[in-house]
């Protein structure tokens, strides 16, 4: 049984390691942490398999596990963050009284960040400029050299992607 786990983990490693590390690195921002995330994704897979849960699509599962590990990683990074930033920098999430609510909120934000990072660059950039930098669709269109309706499509697509995968995470 255990030998079996190693066999298909080995296969996954050989075929997809580079690809999944690149993916994970994109989700959290750098290659070094990408490796760390993929390690914990392998562990998740091994644990799940050791518990006797059949994994039918190892590749898809590996990428999902990597995404989940990236969410945890991003959330963890924030905890350390909140100790480091000035009080005025603290967003509402850090001052919520109930630690469980705060944890869930942080986890949700971390997932959102990871999901946005998963988007194609053009799509993410349009969303970031509009939502986080407060620019109008017209300004974004001008800055990126695309049409206003394209900006609208990008922003809508970003939200739909996040909505779909937030729902999926809630179901698990």
């Amino acid at each position: 049984m255990a030998d079996n786990i190693h066999k298909w983990l080995g296969d996954l490693f050989r075929h997809y390691h580079t690809e999944v590390v690149r993916y994970a690195a994109r989700l959290v921002g750098d290659r070094e942490n990408g490796e760390e995330i993929v390690q914990s994704a392998y562990l998740r897979l091994a644990r799940r398999s050791a518990e006797g849960i059949a994994i039918e699509h190892p590749k898809a599962y590996l990428f999902t596990a990597a995404r989940n590990a990236a969410v945890d990683f991003t959330a963890r990074r924030t905890i350390e963050w909140t100790y480091r930033v000035d009080v005025e920098d603290l967003s509402a999430l850090a001052v919520t009284a109930d630690p469980i609510v705060a944890f869930e909120h942080r986890q949700r934000l971390a997932r959102l960040a990871v999901l946005l990072n998963e988007l194609p660059t053009a799509c993410r950039t349009a969303f970031v400029m509009n939502r986080m930098e407060g620019r109008t669709h017209k300004e974004v269109a001008h800055a990126l050299g695309i049409s206003v309706s394209m900006v609208e499509k990008h922003v809508t697509r970003a939200l739909m992607h996040c909505r779909d995968l937030m729902r999926e995470a809630d179901d698990n």
Binding site: V28, V85, D89, L93, R163
Partner: peptide, 29 residues
């Protein structure tokens, strides 16, 4: 969904979305 995105920022170095408001932290992890 829209409101949650307010608590995120774009890290100028990596071009990726990170947690937290717009200000940058002092020391990275």
């Amino acid at each position: 969904l829209w409101h949650d995105a307010e608590n995120l920022h774009l890290d100028p170095q990596s071009g990726l979305v990170r947690l937290g408001g717009r200000k940058k932290p002092r020391a990275s992890r």
